[in-house]
């Protein structure tokens, strides 16, 4: 079995009947109650929903950060939700790129080092040092691409919110993922920075044909996606601005 599915089908990522509940004390809180979703190759999909509707939970399950209670997740036709930990770790490293609302950069590392982390995880010491120059150059190119060429040696504490999110996008792209999963990527940014980040994601989608899911509760952001779905009562339903 290849480390990352080759994706010969048009549906890149899909969820079938995904159920997930949380326990708060003795009370079971159902979040997803049979969510179905198909994400096509090169598509930019926005998932909307009220707070607590399960948007992030669905994203985490799709990106193998969490496991569904039942249901299936497929990546390029291959079921991935029941894989062994080792394969799940590898897929998170190679197939998915995550962008979080609070950037989640490692504070001890510079912007460049943060972008290199996925490569550090992927490579052993010998492999990394033998490809070090190339990997650093690629990371630098990514930072240049997101407009942080002049901030490479800065630590997260020395960057603005928009810059941190751009660094996080560069990190998500570093492993050359097949699906980008963005959880409220502009939720912590002012309008200008948020639009800049969104434009960047849109450009990446168009230039690279990068398949991506953007979780948001902002209809203005959702409008910029190819397709919008909404999570309501634990299920996914198609949504269009006209319905708003």
């Amino acid at each position: 079995m290849a480390m990352v599915p080759d994706g010969s089908t048009d549906v890149m990522l899909s969820a079938r009947g995904v159920v997930k509940s949380y326990w708060k004390g003795r009370n079971e809180v159902p979040v997803l109650q049979g969510a179905d979703l198909d994400l096509e190759r090169g598509e930019m999909l926005a998932i909307m929903g009220a707070s607590g509707s399960g948007k992030s939970t669905l994203l985490h399950i799709l990106g193998l950060l969490d496991e569904p209670d039942s249901g299936e997740v497929h990546l390029a036709g291959e079921r991935i939700d029941a894989l062994a930990d080792r394969r799940r770790d590898a897929l998170r490293n190679r197939a998915f790129g995550f962008i979080f609302q609070f950037y989640h950069l490692l504070p001890e590392l510079s912007a460049l080092e943060n972008v290199l982390v996925p490569q550090w995880i992927r490579h052993g010491p010998i492999s990394y040092w033998s490809h070090r120059a190339r990997l650093r150059r690629e990371a630098q190119d990514l930072l240049e691409r997101v407009g942080l060429g002049h901030r490479m040696t800065h630590r997260p504490a020395e960057l603005s919110g928009g810059e941190m999110q751009r660094a996080a996008i560069a990190r998500a792209l570093a492993a050359d993922p097949i699906v980008l999963l963005a959880d409220e990527p502009t939720g912590n940014l002012d309008a200008t920075s948020g639009q800049g980040v969104l434009d960047l994601l849109r450009d990446l989608n168009r230039e690279r044909g990068l398949t991506m899911i953007v979780v948001t509760h902002d209809p203005n952001i959702a409008q910029q996606a190819d397709r919008v779905v909404r999570l309501a009562e634990g299920r996914v339903e198609e949504w269009s601005p006209a319905l708003a």
């Binding site: 930990d85 998170r92 950069l105 490692l106 492993a175």
Partner: peptide, 9 residues
Amino acid sequence: GILKSLGAS
């Protein structure tokens, strides 16, 4: 959590 999301085992 960040490291695990990036594929750390």
